[in-house]
């Protein structure tokens, strides 16, 4: 790895850390393959979005300050989540309107923070990936990635490079799956109705696998697909791109 290799601070995110470690390793492999030096700060926790979205601004500010301190030294901060990346890129700068010093630091971190697939495509110009998958795949556009960060073409461009993979679009790929963090806990009926529609939309594509860039959506979708007895596999896009497709899909592994 050259001296000029961009130094990436990898922000694993809570759900990947807790629920799907393989996504973290897949993301690291993709970035290292593209010539990055990847570091994983061991004192990282959460981006603070749950606090921010629940109205707990004080804790969101405190957590954001910690994240800024920890990650501002890297050339880039990359997250395998549009939602958490959106928190840093779009919402951190909103948290410090009354605090010019922190405002500048939040803006600076926001400017060099990226969701994984857009980092690979827009910054690193990656077009070829190690993964292969024989079958039909559909992609769910997670809301924050799509609307806050404009993540739409990037994962599809990368999936085009996966040997054997055929991408089929769902009619409502841009419609929210109903996860919404605490929303699915506070309003389980509505969340259930929304993810039911999402599952039907995915099943209607006839795809063998559904991919997305956010673990929250994926866990939500996997739960409903398995309830419906659908055979559709559920994976984070990084796993397929990195060629980690042999392990058990989300929701299929642990029931031994």
């Amino acid at each position: 790895m050259s001296e000029q290799a961009p130094h990436v601070g990898f922000f694993v995110t809570c759900l990947v850390d807790l629920m799907r470690p393989s996504v973290g390793f897949a993301a690291i492999r993709l970035m290292e393959d593209a010539g990055c030096r990847v570091s994983v700060p061991d004192d990282q926790t959460c981006c603070g979005q749950p606090a921010y979205n629940t109205g707990d601004r004080a804790d969101a500010v405190a957590i954001a300050k910690r994240v800024i301190e920890r990650f501002e030294g890297f050339d880039y901060t990359v997250l395998p989540s549009g939602s958490c990346a959106g928190m840093i890129c779009k919402h951190y700068p909103e948290l410090f309107a009354d605090d010019p010093d922190w405002q500048d630091r939040a803006d600076a971190l926001a400017a060099k923070t990226h969701e994984l697939t857009s980092f690979l495509v827009d910054i690193l110009w990656v077009r070829e990936v190690p993964g292969d998958f024989r079958g039909k795949v559909t992609y769910h556009d997670s809301c924050s990635g799509l609307r806050e960060l404009g993540v739409k073409a990037q994962p599809r461009a990368l999936l085009e490079g996966v040997d054997g993979l055929e991408l089929v679009e769902a009619e409502k790929s841009e419609t929210c799956c109903g996860f919404g963090g605490s929303f699915c806990v506070k309003y389980p009926d509505i969340s259930g109705a929304m993810v039911g529609d999402k599952a039907d939309d995915i099943i209607a594509t006839g795809a063998d696998m559904v991919l997305a860039g956010d673990m929250g959506c994926l866990l939500n979708i996997a739960g409903r697909l398995s309830e419906k007895g659908a055979k559709t596999q559920v994976r984070h896009v990084a796993e397929v791109l990195a060629g980690f497709g042999d392990s058990a899909a989300i929701g299929r592994g642990g029931k031994d």
Binding site: V12, V16, D17, L18, M19, R20, P21, S22, V23, G24, F25, V40, D42, L218, L219, A222, G223, S226, E227, V234, I250, G251, G253, G254, K255
Partner: peptide, 11 residues
Amino acid sequence: RLPVAEGRTFQ
């Protein structure tokens, strides 16, 4: 029926 964690954290 909910997706299961893999048992160990990434970290």
